[in-house]
């Protein structure tokens, strides 16, 4: 077992554990904090798997931007969360189906030829990645930027304060 493998298993354990803890939290705010840990560890995994640029992005976008957005919303939206108190039947079907899928998926994964060969280390430097991206995927990048713009506009539109007339109509 190499040092790399040890790092991987430690990180994988952190990721799985923190995600598991996140999804069973009753308070959304706790879940978000656990998830930040999970995403940090995933970012380190990305680094280990030779994607330093994506590791940075993972920390900045997922752990930074997205989760902070969630925190903001949790703080702005004061409403009953709608959770029932610890009912097992609520979890049961999902967990059973999940375990079946996991079993079948695991079997499938290890049937793939070459899945048991080890990954050798490698590193895509950010500049190489950037060169590659803009040489081969410049058009999808443009489309992605457009998608972000549309997301921005859509969020603005949905989040705008409604006119007084509209709110009167509803009541």
């Amino acid at each position: 077992m190499t040092l790399y493998a040890v790092t991987f298993y430690v990180l994988a354990a952190i990721v799985v554990l923190s995600t598991l803890l996140a999804i069973i939290q009753r308070q959304v705010i706790h879940a978000v904090v656990y998830l930040i840990v999970s995403f940090f560890a995933t970012g380190l995994l990305f680094y280990l798997l030779g994607a330093p640029f994506l590791a940075a992005l993972e920390v900045i976008i997922y752990a930074g931007a997205i989760m902070v957005l969630f925190l903001f919303i949790v703080m702005t939206v004061r409403a009953e969360s709608g959770e029932d108190k610890g009912e097992i039947y609520q979890w049961l079907p999902a967990v059973i189906l999940g375990i079946i899928s996991l079993f079948v998926g695991g079997v499938l994964i290890f049937e793939i030829p070459g899945s048991k060969t080890g990954l050798s280390t490698g590193m895509a430097t950010p500049s190489a990645f950037g060169q590659f991206l803009f040489k081969n995927y410049w058009f999808p990048v443009e489309i992605a930027s457009f998608l972000l713009l549309i997301g921005l506009v859509g969020a603005l539109y949905l989040g705008r304060r409604e006119s007084r007339k509209g709110s009167e109509d509803r009541r």
């Binding site: 899928s101 998926g105 499938l108």
Partner: peptide, 16 residues
């Protein structure tokens, strides 16, 4: 959503 996961499980099992 439950139906969705059920379908997913079915598809993965069929594949396997």
């Amino acid at each position: 959503l439950k139906m969705l996961l059920l379908g997913f499980t079915a598809i993965v099992s069929a594949l396997a």
